[in-house]
Nucleic acid binder design. Structure first.
Lengths: 193, 193
DNA sequence: CGGTAGGGATAGGGTTCT
DNA sequence: TAGAACCCTATCCCTACC
């Protein structure tokens, strides 16, 4: 339910490639922390970066991960060393940064950062700080407590009303039934009380 | 030559529905591994399960996947909560486990389902039904329990990751410090040793 | 414990068969 | 032509290993 799959935007991909060019592969956390990329990639984890890079590489080299696996199986039996090829591909891919982002120079001209999410994300930071500030105990909250706090305060303001309204609607259309203040899925379509 | 299109038997379909009822959607491998279903579904893969469930759901909801797509595309606005349900079908279908040979999904209201967009309302409905479905006791949850459930599960899809990521970032930039898994606002920007 | 690599699962778009 | 079964790959998750 939660995650409808967050597709990578061209901008994010560009940032990732630039990051690899700058810090090398396998430095996912470093790339993520680089102020040059951190804002663009703030909704991605280091593991996401790793996965995406794997996907990019493998696509460029073989067309797909599955084909890559098959191909690698064959290669292992022969003595072909494709590490050189791999390295070249990495550089080529990273170089692709230039074509993607802009024609001329510079590895990554800070493109007009689209501040779509800006509001949302900064508010998360605020909530995090709020969570820590408001925490009662001396030690401060752990990650879980912070998550709970953020979730709780980030929810729709009138979620209560919305839920109530939807409940009524679902009862009306017969999807669920309400019996003594409790709700059940409707088995047959007509079971009002 | 591999696969002459293996049609799903009623028994397999029943097992799938029971599996979804037991483990929830998206737990295809789990359902497949459940000793209760594994023998019946032994010639199906987890992806098969997923595909079949999609067919069942979408058929019940819209008549076909193609129509479903069109329908979803069409929707640009949907103010009132008059939108029909989408995911209630899931539960309804699962309920259908008990009487398989009957026409599919008798619970859905007649009116041509006015499909909603993949937005807020639908997901709230889903959550509501999920709340009821997952409720342990026999009677079903009351409004308050449902609200709690919805609030808890309505967080941003990757709010958890986002929060984790932002926490680390804030630690990195020295806004907060992490000590023994707990977080504190950093006083001056350097308080760690 | 934090980070990475790699295998594997899921979601959805797309394709083939009937 | 539609619907069911199946394929493909981007994304996401889990676990072993430093």
């Amino acid at each position: 339910m939660g995650a409808p799959k967050q597709k990578w935007t061209a901008q994010e991909e560009t940032a990732l490639k630039a990051g690899v060019l700058k810090h090398g592969t396998g430095k996912w956390r470093t790339i993520l922390s680089d102020p040059e990329f951190t804002s663009i990639l703030k909704s991605r984890s280091n593991v996401d970066l790793k996965d995406k890079w794997r996907n990019i590489s493998v696509t460029a080299m073989y067309g797909s991960r599955k084909k890559a696996k098959l191909a690698l199986k064959k290669i292992t039996s022969s003595h072909d060393d494709d590490s050189a090829t791999t390295a070249l591909t990495i550089v080529a891919l990273a170089n692709g940064v230039q074509h993607i982002s802009s024609p001329p120079v510079s590895c990554l001209p800070p493109p007009p950062l689209q501040p779509d999410f800006e509001g949302l994300f900064t508010s998360v930071d605020e909530l995090i700080l709020e969570a820590i500030t408001n925490f009662k105990r001396h030690l401060g909250p752990d990650g879980k407590s912070i998550l709970l706090y953020v979730e709780k305060h980030n929810m729709q303001p009138d979620m209560k009303r919305l839920v109530t309204s939807r409940l009524k609607h679902l009862v009306n259309v017969g999807t669920i039934v309400k019996i003594k203040h409790r709700y059940r899925i409707c088995r047959n379509g007509a079971e009002q009380s």
